[in-house]
Every structure is written in C-alpha cells, then in structure tokens.
C-alpha cells in the first residue's frame, strides 16, 4: 500500500489521537500542580504506575475488571496525593525550583524502587478488552478507544470543574495569587492538598488506562514523564488546556514519524519538539501559566 493513501493517513491520525489522549490526561495533571503551586512533580508518572499496579493487583488477586477498578483506584490515588501534599510537598511550596525538583525526584526514586522490590522488573499486562472495531476502512483498537474516551472525558470534566465549580474557582485563585486568595478567606493549604489529590487521581486514572493498552513495569514512568514535560512545554507550562492540545499533538506526531520513518525515531519526536519549543518559544504555543 502506498504511504500517502488517504485511508492510511486517516488511520494514522486516529491512532495518534487515541495514543495522545492518555498523554494528555497525564500531562494535564502535571500541569495543574505546576500551575497552582509552581512545583514540577517529577514523581507524576510514578503516581500513574501506582494506579496501574493497584489495578493489576485488584485484577490478579480479586479478578476485578480494570474498568471497575477505576472506581477504586481514583479515590485511592486522590487520598494518597492529598496526604502526600500535606505531609511532604507542602513544605517546599514557594521555596524555589531546586528544592521542589529534588524533593519530587527523591519521591520518584522511592516509588520506582519500592515497585521493583515488590513486583520485580518484569512487564505486566492485563489481557482484558481486546480486538478492534472496523469503521469504514480503518481499524480502531477497542481498549485504546475506551481509554481515550475516558481520558478525554476526565480531562474535559476537570477543566469544566476548574472553570465553573466554586472549588475549582478557589483553586484558580490560589494559582493566580496565593496571598490575595488567602486574604479572601480561601484555605490555601487545603486547596493545594485538593489540587495534588486531583492531579494524583488523574494520574491514577491514566494508570488504569495504561493497563488496558500497554505492558508496564515499575520503570515505565521515565518515558512518560519526559513526554509529559515535552507536552506541557508545547502547550505552555501551567496552562491546563494547553496540555490537552499538546498531548494530542504529540500522539499524532509520534504515530506519523513511526509510520513514515521508523518506530525508533518516534521516540525522539518528543525530545526534539521539547528542545525546539524551549529555544524558540519557551512559554509554549498557548502561552504559559494560565491554569485554565
């Protein structure tokens, strides 16, 4: 088949968007934390893997289907994030980037290696939800479609929440100006706990989806976190919805490079985009530091 046939291009586009939706969900959470408290959470992808392994344990030990595990993993990760913020991360908010980068770097190393101690470094997968839908001339993988729809729905849901809900507005006020927010009677520390919990829950949700479409090990996070950085830099740091566009863009770009060049070079797309955007337009395509 010739590479420039429209059917093939459409197939690439759809596959790319499906892959990008997972990136987007993960990157939006990372960006939310950065936007609200100026902390770059290097352990964000490990929170996703915590969600993935929790799903795996529920599936392997209790036979719970990943789509049901979703409803257990989300609150679990929310709680974990909430208290992680309260006990550890809150102490470095406002202390400068070095402190927060190093703290979350340490957290990520702890999580990865605790994962290795418990689960070893073999790859795990959950063989549920397989097969593909055939729509016209293109094939769409069922698990990827389910994961992508969930991811987009969650991301837009959180966006809507931040934009319109009272709590969401309070979070944005904290992002905008913590001191003024505090003067207006907003419990700033609690809002940050809530924000970190929300971001961790989004990462956990991404973890549930990860189990449906990829095999994973405790060390899988490294690839994702670097891609997330690329995404939030493409979309604008702290810009929540920018990360959604950035994620979809990266997903599509990767699939096209994999299709036209090679899958190895597809790995390089994120880094090349990352460096290019940093050098040309460091505030990102959508402009930085606007939580919504």
């Amino acid at each position: 088949m010739h590479l420039l046939e429209p059917v093939l291009l459409l197939q690439f586009l759809v596959s790319g968007l499906l892959a990008g939706a997972l990136y987007a969900l993960l990157a939006c959470g990372l960006n939310l934390v950065f936007g609200v408290m100026r902390v770059i959470n290097l352990a964000h992808a490990e929170l996703m893997l915590a969600g993935a392994f929790l799903t795996y344990v529920l599936y392997a030990w209790a036979g719970i289907h990943p789509l049901l595990a979703f409803f257990l993993v989300l609150p679990a990760l929310f709680g974990a994030g909430f208290y992680l913020q309260r006990l550890v991360v809150e102490r470095v908010v406002g202390k400068g980037e070095l402190q927060s980068l190093l703290l979350t770097y340490g957290l990520s190393i702890i999580l990865i290696n605790t994962g290795l101690l418990i689960f070893a470094s073999d790859f795990k997968a959950i063989p549920e939800l397989q097969g593909a839908l055939i729509v016209g001339d293109i094939a769409i993988s069922k698990p990827r479609t389910a994961a992508a729809l969930l991811a987009i729905a969650l991301t837009l849901g959180v966006y809507h929440f931040l934009k319109h809900a009272r709590l969401g507005k309070a979070i944005r006020a904290v992002a905008e100006h913590p001191d003024v927010a505090m003067l207006c009677g907003i419990d700033v520390v609690r809002m940050r706990m809530f924000t970190f919990g929300l971001a961790a829950a989004m990462a956990g949700a991404a973890g549930v989806m990860l189990t449906m479409i990829y095999s994973f090990s405790p060390e899988t996070g490294a690839d994702f976190i670097l891609k997330c950085f690329a995404i939030i830099i493409i979309g604008g740091m702290g810009n929540f919805i920018g990360a959604l566009y950035g994620g979809l863009l990266l997903g599509v770009a990767e699939i096209f490079v994999a299709g036209f060049v090679s899958s190895q070079w597809a790995e390089a797309v994120a880094y090349v985009l990352l460096i290019l955007i940093l050098l040309i337009r460091p505030t990102g395509l959508k402009g930085a530091a606007d939580v919504t």
């Binding site: 402190q99 190093l102 340490g106 190393i109 702890i110 290696n113 290795l116 101690l117």
Partner: peptide
C-alpha cells in the same frame, strides 16, 4: 540494588526537608 536506590531516594527527600 532496588533497596539501595530507594534509600538514596529517602536520603534526597530527607536532605531537602531537614538539611537543605
């Protein structure tokens, strides 16, 4: 090996929090 790296992680967190 994994325990060793996890300890390094704990060390980083402890230094940042208590001994900056």
């Amino acid at each position: 090996p994994a325990l060793h790296l996890a300890l390094l992680g704990v060390l980083i967190v402890a230094i940042v929090l208590f001994l900056p």
